[in-house]
Simulated scan of single mutants.
Amino acid sequence: MRFHTRKLVKPEDLNSNGTLFGGKVLAWIDEEAALYSIIQLENSKIVTKYMSEINFMSAAKQGDVVEIGIQVVKFGKTSLTLNCEVRNKMNHETIVTVDNIIMVNLGENGKPAPHGKTKVEFVKDRLAASEMS
């Protein structure tokens, strides 16, 4: 799994117990999944269709640095299925896992559209290919 984003847990991210609010971390996960999908599918029109069971495993507190990892589970015709792990950057303790996040590729009409992708692509490889042509 690749960890692309880091977040600092700030006072406004805390719940009444003084730990990272679940809704805040879910918003971070949703944003990260969307950004990852936009880059993979090369389309800015992406929506979240589904998130499977969310497993909160440990707490994060103010001042902790957390990192969000995303990994492709599979490519569908119009979708991309991901899994996610949020962990503490300093001790690698898992904070949250989500087994399946389904992101859907939309066409100009706002309806699901085939994306034509079948494997993970890295931007550096796309750039190298475009320089060769």
Rank of each mutant, 00 (worst) to 15 (best):
V65P: 09
H92Q: 15
V98L: 04
L26F: 04
T5S: 12
N100S: 14
S16G: 13
V65T: 14
H4M: 15
P112T: 08
N109G: 05
A34T: 14
V104R: 04
R126W: 07
K124D: 12
T118F: 13
A59H: 11
M57D: 13
D64K: 05
N55M: 09
G22W: 03
K10R: 15
Y36S: 07
L14W: 03
V104A: 00
T5E: 13
V65S: 12
G18F: 03
I54R: 02
D99S: 09
I101K: 02
M90G: 14
E12M: 10
H4G: 11
P112F: 10
L8Y: 08
A27I: 09
S44Y: 13
L14C: 06
K124T: 15
I46N: 01
I101F: 01
W28K: 01
G63V: 07
G22M: 00
D64T: 04
D30K: 05
Q71F: 13
L41M: 08
G110M: 00
G76T: 05
F21E: 01
T94P: 05
C84N: 02
L80A: 08
L35H: 10
N109F: 09
C84A: 13
G18K: 07
K117H: 12
A60T: 04
V9R: 11
E32D: 12
I38W: 01
F21L: 08
L127K: 11
N43S: 08
E131G: 11
L26R: 00
I54Y: 01
E53K: 00
K117V: 04
Y50E: 01
L80Y: 13
G18E: 06
G69Q: 06
V25C: 05
S52T: 05
I95T: 04
G22A: 05
K77A: 13
M1C: 08
V86P: 01
I54S: 00
R6H: 09
G23F: 06
V66F: 09
I29E: 01
S37C: 04
H4F: 14
L20V: 06
V47S: 03
M90L: 14
T94S: 06
P112C: 10
K10I: 12
K61Y: 15
I102T: 14
S44R: 10
E53W: 00
N55D: 12
N88Y: 01
D64N: 07
A128L: 12
I68M: 11
